[in-house]
Amino acid sequence: MNRLVVSDIHAGYGAVRVLHGVSVEANQGETVVLLGTNGNGKSTLIKCIMGLIQPSSGQIFLEVDGRRIDLVGRSTEDIVNLGVTLVPEGRRLFPKLTVEENLLLGAYRPEARREIDRNLSACFETFPILQQRKRQLAGSMSGGEQQMLAVARALMSEPKILLVDEPSVGLAPILVSRVIATIKELKERHNLTVLMAEQNFNQATKIADRGYIIVHGKIEFEGRTTRELVENELVKKFYLGV
């Protein structure tokens, strides 16, 4: 049992306050989507979870088999070692390393090293292009291939909880549906808990079990089902332009 809980988080960058009391959670096996347009604080929330920025107040914790593990105050490395992995915004690959080297770096944490062969073949099976291009420099791959590599690299870390920050950015529509569908497939195969930030409402709701809408650093709506999200007035206003 793995559960991620974010409770009443306030955070920002110096004097710029971005999050004002945000609470979200993702339960074992769920795909939870965090919807919001540009600049509403999606990435900021994800950075708080990963320990890349420290919230000024609030709690973030994991529940692993009934045990509570607080994340606030831990280093990013510690958090990754607990089994929380991020596919970051903008992919953040190592452009001058090969595809294979990028994947192997994903498996740095001790628990992942033991599973390295199995995970590598699983990645190559899901993304055959990565196997064909394993000696190519990551920076010379196309945008779509890079996004697949970013997802595959995250899976190499044998995560329990996978955070994904806007996988659709910069991709052609056909690739967006492919990447999103792959995330769903991987989630099921690896029994992951997924929290995904997205702007692409139509694609995100295809795979989400439920979700939140974040506006100006506050959760304005919580949809307990995808249907609730789709039918919500805020969604119509912000996304469907009704």
Binding site: E77, V80, N81, P88, R92, F94, L105, Y108, S157
Partner: peptide, 8 residues
């Protein structure tokens, strides 16, 4: 920073 996200 990306390296930290790999647990390094």
């Amino acid at each position: 920073q990306a390296l930290r996200l790999m647990g390094v």
